[in-house]
């Protein structure tokens, strides 16, 4: 059978291309232009070469916020991925409880990010918030507005609450797509719980888990709204992750040059790590 060549399809891609050009490519080009210049406002720019890149790469402030960002991202991945799989495994595959579980799981995902931040802020306040009050009543000295450890605990707990559902739903989609024949074959071979999970369920979930890890990695690496509303980067700078620091430099200090250089470095790190994750996972799948 001859393959039909139809180049008209490219015309249908054109609107998307125009949209992406306006919301991604042109802003990115502008950021590149800003990163090599200095401005004092009034649309007047002065050439500064790679000075801002040198400054950002050697600044302790950038190193610290990058470290905090990596700590945050890997902590939530280490919690959300296993927890999401575990919850998906306990969910019913058939019967009237399926839609109930799915809706319950989807609820946190439907709440706007700034609302999640505000909710958790109030929920965790030591004097009037339920979480803060209970923890203090149990004898813990908990105050996320004053103690960095508590702020981190609350930030991670909030992210786990908000986003584990995504991992659950993706894992669940992978689980329900496994045909019964696999389980029957496992039963004949005498395979029990762990063996079934290791050799049937986990390999079959690999593709959706790749998507889950990538989505959670990229999203958490770019976290801004929830963290900003919950802690605002504090106490001190203890929860100032990359995006919060970037906004402080760009909008707080109005240092557009250093902020542009920092955002390009930030972008390249996300691009590299996403590519490494994707390549490793796809390679495992092939092998």
């Amino acid at each position: 059978m001859n393959k039909t060549v139809n180049q008209k399809a490219w015309l249908f891609v054109l609107p998307v291309f125009v949209l992406v050009a306006f919301n991604a490519i042109i802003p990115l080009m502008t950021v590149v232009n800003y990163s090599v210049q200095e401005t004092f406002g009034d649309n007047t720019f002065f050439w500064s070469g790679v000075l801002w890149f040198e400054e950002v790469l050697n600044s302790e402030r950038f190193h610290d916020s990058l470290f905090r960002q990596l700590m945050f991202t890997f902590s939530i991945l280490a919690i959300e991925i296993p927890l999401g799989i575990a919850i998906a495994l306990t969910m019913p595959r058939k019967g009237p409880w399926v839609p109930v579980c799915l809706v319950l799981m989807a609820l946190p995902l439907l709440i706007p990010w700034n609302v999640v931040g505000a909710m958790w802020n109030i929920f965790a306040l030591p004097d009037i918030g339920f979480l803060g009050y209970v923890l203090n009543a149990l004898g813990f000295d908990y105050n996320f507005t004053r103690q960095p450890g508590d702020a981190w605990f609350t930030l991670i707990l909030m992210d786990v609450w908000h986003w584990t559902s995504l991992v659950v739903l993706l894992s669940y989609a992978g689980l329900v797509s496994i045909p019964d024949a696999y389980y029957q074959a496992a039963k004949i071979d005498g395979a029990k719980g762990w063996a079934i999970f290791r050799h049937i369920q986990l390999p079959k979930m690999k593709r959706v888990l790749t998507i889950a890890v990538l989505l959670r990695f990229m999203d958490s690496f770019m976290i801004y709204t929830e963290a900003s509303v919950l802690t605002g980067g504090g106490p001190g700078n203890s929860t100032t992750v990359l995006s919060i620091d970037l906004v402080k430099i760009a909008l707080g200090q109005f240092d557009l040059g250093p902020a542009a250089a920092m955002s390009l470095i930030y972008f390249l790190i996300i691009l590299l790590l996403s590519w490494v994750f994707y390549t490793l996972m796809m390679r495992n799948e092939e092998s």
């Binding site: 080009m29 590149v32 090599v36 401005t39």
Partner: peptide, 14 residues
């Protein structure tokens, strides 16, 4: 296009 703050080196890069 002045808001995009073009320079010759960045234009050459693109």
């Amino acid at each position: 296009m002045t808001w995009m703050a073009w320079t010759w080196p960045t234009a050459a890069f693109f």
